[in-house]
Design a protein around this nucleic acid. Structure first.
Lengths: 147, 147
DNA sequence: GTTGACATGTAGCCTAAGCTACATTAATCT
DNA sequence: AGATTAATGTAGCTTAGGCTACATGTCAAC
């Protein structure tokens, strides 16, 4: 029956679409670490002149071991340079990413604040949510925030 | 020097605050699986009358093995009942969670759409972002969406 | 009542992100 | 210079979330 056929097809389709969304979210999660560390390092360099492992670990709220290993992976992704016992620097790619992340963070926080959320909660919620905001949505947020 | 002292103190404070935000985000990530599966199961029960492992795996876009193990953990958290080779049901706690997640998802999607984001992108971005939206921020979003 | 298909379960592997405990290097302070 | 402290690195463990390959259960259709 055509009705049933169509229903089944559309169900299958929406299953696929939904699965694709979940997959995209998981992919984004794998990038979160890189984004967080890169942004943190940019901040430290701006504020202190250099980014050292122990400060990164403190800021991130993890053990220095966890930080060391995360930094190694972010390095492998090409966002930073690090040599043993030397402060960390960002590559061009890393600087770009940090800039984008900072802007995105600020826009999401601004959005929440404009909606009436208190600053501290806006910061906390933005921290997790921002990584999943695509550039199209970001554009829309920017328009609203600046209107 | 008092100035330096205060600067150090406030820096330390903000480091702690920032670390706390990251920790909260990590904690939220650990709950994401539970939220996703619970919501998915509620959907399946509503649509098909029952929730079976293989359908959950398909919807989530993972292997059935991954689904089985995730379901076991969500069960341990008290959100669902599952017995070998039987369809899964939600506990009272699970039903409540599913309801909250559904509402939250819809509100976040509505927010993005109201900001001018196309439906499909809104859905995709909401999928990842929604888990990090606190109830206070959700209230603010609700007010805006319904205004 | 067998067969075949699909659902479910088990074994065992990988990577990421977390940890503690211990080792080493560097810097600072008598 | 030697001792202390702080930073960095290594070893080795855990848990969560992925996977494939193989084993078993269930059910329907012949």
């Amino acid at each position: 029956m055509s009705t049933k056929f169509n229903k089944n097809m559309s169900q299958k389709q929406s299953t696929k679409q939904r699965a694709a969304r979940f997959k995209a979210t998981r992919k984004q999660h794998r990038l979160e670490t890189a984004e967080d560390y890169t942004e943190l390092i940019a901040d430290l360099i701006k504020q202190k002149g250099e980014a050292r492992t122990c400060d990164i670990a403190k800021l991130k709220g993890v053990s220095h071991v966890t930080a060391i290993r995360a930094i190694r992976r972010v390095k492998e992704l090409g966002y930073l340079n690090s040599e043993p016992r030397k402060p960390i620097t960002l590559t061009k790619k890393g600087k770009k990413l940090a800039e984008f992340c900072k802007k995105r963070h600020e826009l999401v926080v601004s959005l929440f604040i404009k909606l009436g959320v208190p600053q501290d909660i806006a910061e906390k919620d933005a921290e997790g949510a921002e990584h999943h905001i695509s550039s199209k949505t970001l554009d829309a947020i920017e328009k609203y925030v600046k209107s």
